[in-house]
Structure formats: C-alpha cells, structure tokens
Design a protein around this nucleic acid. Structure first.
Length: 480
RNA sequence: CGGGGCGUGGCGCAGUCCGGUAGCGCGCGCGGUUUGGGUCCGCGAGGUCCUCGGUUCAAAUCCGGGCGCCCCGACCA
C-alpha cells in the first residue's frame, strides 16, 4: 500500500506540523527530552537563514565572535530582572572532572552576562565605541513543553550584542537590527512580519524596550520571529561597561542585544506549508529545482539521463540549486508527492518525449495540479527557471500577506476583542491599560499583546480596557 | 507541578480483560515486474514485549515498586 497522506491542516494543525517536520526529513527525535536532531535538509534551511542574516550583519559593520557556553552562576545573578526571568529554565553544571565545582556553571540561556563582562574589559574609551559584535551559538532553556524548532530545550541562534556612547545611538541600533530582521523575513523567507514594540509584560528580562517582528502562521497563531532589545544602561551598570568620554568624564555605555533562532525554520514551515507539505521560498530552499527522470524502458535510460545531466549542469552553472532524483525503486508519482512534501519550489520532469522534442516539463509547488505545469524549451531553461523561482518567491509572500491581512480585525471594545480572538483572528485595539488589565485579557481570552505596531492609525480612540482615550493601538493574538 | 493517556522489530499498531512462549501494516534487503501523479508479485532479515521484583509448571498478559515518553494546562525565542 502507498504511504498515507499527512494529516490536513484544518483537521489538526499541530499534528500536521509534527508530521511534516519528521516526514520532510527536517528533524529527528533525540534521546534527550526536548531536544531534536536537525537533519541535513532542515539544517540547510537554517544555513540559508544564517547566510541571509550574516550578510546583512556584516553590511552594517558587525563582526562575529564566540563566547563560552558556560557562565559562572554569579554572573546571571548580577542583573536583577535577568535572574528572575531566566532562573526557572536554567541548566546548571555542578560537577566536572569528577569533582564538585566551587561555583556551579550555567549553560548559557543567552549571553548578555558573559559578553557584558568581556565588554567591560574591552571598552575603556569613547574611541572603542560603538562595539558591534554578533555570535552564532547554541543556547539552552529548560522549557517545560517543547516542539521541534518552535521551542526546544537547546536551540541555535545568533545573538548580537552592542555597546554605544549615547542612548540615541543604542536606540538607532536596536531599530536598525529590527529592520534587518524584517527585511530578511520578507525578502528571503517570504514571511510578511509586523514590526512593533513589546508591552512591559512581554519585554525581555532586563531590557528598557523590546522590539519584535510578529508573523502569522497558517493556523492564524502568532509567532514572535525575532526580537531586538534596547538594554539601556541596566547591563552596563551591572557589568561595569563604562568608558572615558572625549571630555574626560567616566560614563556608562548604552547596550543592545538582538536575536533570531532556529525557530525561524518552524516559521517557514508554518507560514507557507499546505496539506501536501512544505512550500519553501526559493531563496531558502536547499534544492530550488528537483529533476525527476522518467524512463519507460531500459533502452531509453541513457538518452534521458544524458539530457538530465546536461540540464543539471546548465542550471548549476547559473547558480541554481538543483538535485536529480536518481532513486531507482520509486515510481515518478511517488517522487512527485515526495518532493511536494519536501517543498521544492520547482520540479522538472524529463522523459523520452521531452528528449525527443527538446522540451522539459516544469511544475511549480505553489500552484497545484495542471495549472502549475508548463512545457518549456530546453534551450531557454535557465531564464525560465530563474523567472519562475522569482515569481514563486513573490507569490509566497503575496499569499502570506493576503492571508494575514484578511485575519486582522479592528475591534472597538472588549466584547469585540473576545469574539475576534475566539474566532482565531488577530485583533487590533486601542490600548492604554495596565499590566493587570493586560494579564486579565490573557487569562480570559488566551490572547496576548503581540506588539504595539510601529504602523499606527491616524486616530486611535478609547482604550478597550479602561475606556480612556489611548495614544496607540495594540495587536492581540494567540501565540506560540 | 495539576489533569489525561501510553511503553511490544526502524515507524504505526494488534495481542493484555480470559496466562501456554509474539503477529499485522509501513519501511528495509534480494529477485522479477512497472515507471508522464503515491506499481504489483514472490522470497527474506529484523523483537532482552521499558525496568526490577513477586505469583505460577508456564508471564507481553496477573500483582507490587521504579523509570521513561506523549497530549491538555501554567512558563517560554
């Protein structure tokens, strides 16, 4: 019997997600609770994300470095809110080398503390500023409930850490990095994100302000896809990151931190995937084109494979990532379904008829069935494929944007917000409430303030919690 | 940590109530057949039935202890 199709998204989105992650070969279960093995196909998506971000970081003057995995426990305790925020989820090493350690070592949940300590040594003068550092690393947070990519006990990310002479510069850096994340999300991952500021309740432990990009998944839940924190002088004071100014005055630095993680792989899966599986944006797809050779009789094999090989070389020479499915035991129909599940943007079929006619069949993943198929001349293959990939990249973004926009509603009072959230929509509402009001919304509806969007309406109206006139709208949604 | 469920070849499960020495589907290997939307047939490999103890002539099955995992909540990139 043929392999079963995946669970439909509409039937059980979580189950769909889990099945896709394993069946598309992105990840495998690990022996340790809450951790996953990232398999080559999933890791290549992550490497695409890394490449897209790293390029942008360098272009804005950041340098990569690497700090230790272990952090002295006392460091974590130096910044009050930071301890409170992270203590419950720390993994701590108490023994090493067969002995109990004098001071336990925390496995980093994030590196503000160690990096702050290092910055304190590195920065003496205003001439040392700004200091713009990024690191690619793994971090550990002992989460109670985990899901592959979205929330794992250990995850990969980049964390940027910068120090500046003035508050204004730190704020500009924080905003610049958020813009970079948003640009990456839209351009490379084809995910339209909403930029905004976090509420006090959702803010990073120890930050002055936290900015976020929020994305809508296909089940309409929100996913915080990256954050950028203006840390003010909190960490500078806790770690003595100070400098001597031009005027010979000792002053504390203003610092920032910002990160995007392997969660983004989950975002790509959930923002674009459909009932047939993944739909990868061409810019992040490990394979942009997969060639499925079709051979009816052995006598045709060499002619077909010669053509396949020639087309593969042509596309590769044009920097298109192409893979030939040479598997012997599977029928073409099986392979079509398999590559659709794995989200390859373009499938090329080459059979005896195509060899004879000098044609190739191209099928685009984002348009199902016959409508997505076209016959093209082998002679023009490079241009056609290049245009097709660009078009798929664009259409995935357009689809996701249309989907998102059709599920955000403006609400005028609390009852409307409850209705909207109950229907799974995102709700935009005037907000001037307190932390307690915000907590109440969360307790009663399950939705949280995802952000106060930068993009604000002309007129705001009355707060849905207090009835007083508000100066901004907040975006409410259920989140991962 | 509260509520629910489950541990049996790589994966998904049946067998447990009523004890008799393990079976099905997928996957895997070999041979043949097929190939433009999930081919078909045959042969074959693969299991300390989570663990420790007890009852019994005999335990996947009954009894007791332990461990682990999953789902739903609270916490979270």
């Amino acid at each position: 019997m043929a392999e079963q199709a995946v669970t439909a998204q509409s039937e059980d989105f979580s189950r769909w997600y889990n099945e896709i992650v394993y069946r598309a070969d992105l990840a495998a279960p690990s022996p340790v609770r809450g951790c996953v093995i990232i398999k080559p196909y999933g890791y290549e998506i992550w490497e695409g994300i890394k490449a897209g971000l790293d390029r942008r970081f360098r272009a804005t003057g950041h340098q990569n470095a690497y700090f230790p995995l272990f952090i002295p426990e006392s460091y974590i305790k130096r910044e009050a809110e930071h301890v409170e925020g992270f203590s419950p989820e720390l993994a701590v090493v108490t023994h090493a080398g067969g002995k109990k350690l004098e001071e336990p070592l925390v496995v980093r949940p994030t590196s503000e503390t160690v990096i702050g300590e290092a910055f304190s040594d590195w920065i003496q003068s205003y001439r040392d500023l700004p200091l713009l550092i990024n690191q690619w690393a793994n971090v550990v947070r002992w989460e109670l409930r985990t899901r592959p990519f979205l929330r794992t006990a250990e995850f990969l990310w980049q964390e940027g850490h910068t120090a500046h002479a003035t508050a204004a510069e730190a704020e500009a850096e924080t905003r610049q990095m958020l813009d970079i994340y948003a640009d990456f999300a839209m351009d490379d991952a084809a995910i339209p994100v909403i930029k905004g500021e976090k509420s006090r309740l959702e803010r990073f432990a120890g930050a002055l302000r936290t900015y976020t990009i929020e994305a809508m998944m296909r089940d309409k839940r929100a996913l915080q896809s990256a954050t950028s924190h203006n840390l003010g002088q909190n960490f500078a004071k806790a770690f003595a990151i100070d400098y001597l100014s031009e005027n010979n005055v000792q002053a504390y630095c203003w610092t920032t931190s910002w990160g995007m993680s392997t969660r983004m792989v989950g975002a790509v899966v959930m923002a674009h995937g459909d009932d047939k599986g993944l739909r990868l944006p061409p810019k992040l797809a490990p394979y942009q084109v997969v060639i499925v050779p079709i051979v009816r009789r052995d006598t045709q094999r060499s002619a077909v494979m010669d053509t396949v090989e020639r087309l593969r070389a042509t596309l590769m020479a044009a920097d298109i990532r192409v893979h030939v499915d040479r598997r012997d035991g599977q029928s073409p129909g099986f392979k079509f379904n398999d590559w659709e599940m794995r989200g390859v943007p373009v499938r090329m079929e080459i059979g005896p008829k195509d060899v004879e006619n000098g044609n190739a069949v191209l099928a685009r993943r984002d348009v199902p069935g016959r409508a997505g198929k076209q016959f093209v001349s082998q002679a023009s293959i490079t241009d056609v494929v290049r245009d097709l990939l660009a078009d798929i990249q664009r259409s995935l973004l357009d689809d996701a944007r249309a989907f998102r926009d059709s599920h955000i509603v403006d609400v005028a009072d609390y009852a409307q917000l409850c209705d909207a959230v109950a229907a799974g929509e995102w709700a935009r509402a005037a907000w001037a409430g307190s932390d307690i009001d915000e907590q109440r919304v969360k307790d009663e509806t399950g939705a949280t303030i995802r952000c106060f969007p930068f993009d604000q309406p002309e007129r705001v109206g009355k707060c849905i919690a207090t009835g007083e006139s508000a100066d901004k709208v907040a975006l409410f949604a259920k989140a991962y």
